[in-house]
Amino acid sequence: MDYREKSDPELVELCKRADERAAVELLRRFERPVFSLIYRMVRDRELAEDLAQEAFVRAFNNLARYDPSYKFSSWLFKVAYNLTIDHLRKKRLNTVSIHGSPSAVTTELQAATAITVESTEERPDEALQSREIGSEIEVAIGELRQEYRSAIILRHVEGRSYEEIAEIMDVPLGTVKTYIHRARKELQGQLQHLLE
């Protein structure tokens, strides 16, 4: 049985029948998007990994509660988002920086918690330029309010619909539109030189 060819609902059904290989395939599909969302929300690799791990464990261990009328990915993102928001509320990490977690008090800790911008460019000069642009965008995203940041990442980086974002963030559709509109305006203002 080739699990890579199976759809998400098929894999979820197999997981419900305790098929571990189906769970591994779902993990393979969503580990990067879920980790990226959390990483961009908390800006701390180690913490993001812990939270992403917890999100997957909770999702898999509570599959019986999953309503198949929703997309599995939306449900998974919702679990990850709620877990991260709960953690941020407890830690009051509302404003973060690409230069590292605000809780990092030494240079070493700042370096350890700073977001790493990857590049897919093959030529070194293009890769460097791509990384620099990526860093600027990450800085701009990091300066947004937590709600705006999550909404804009889900919309433009993860390609989620407004309805899915409303479901994930548990806010009305109109609020999602407002968050995204304001986030775009702030980003367009900060990244004007890159967008022209």
């Binding site: 571990e20 591994v24 393979r28 599959l63 965008i137 990442i153």
Partner: peptide, 26 residues
């Protein structure tokens, strides 16, 4: 610009660590 941002990857042992804590029950 935003959709071109890379998805940072978790550590290589991520999936293994998750699966060690998952108990799938039919």
């Amino acid at each position: 610009a935003l959709s071109g941002l890379a998805h940072p990857a978790p550590s290589p042992r991520f999936a293994e660590q998750v699966m060690a804590r998952v108990s799938l029950r039919a």
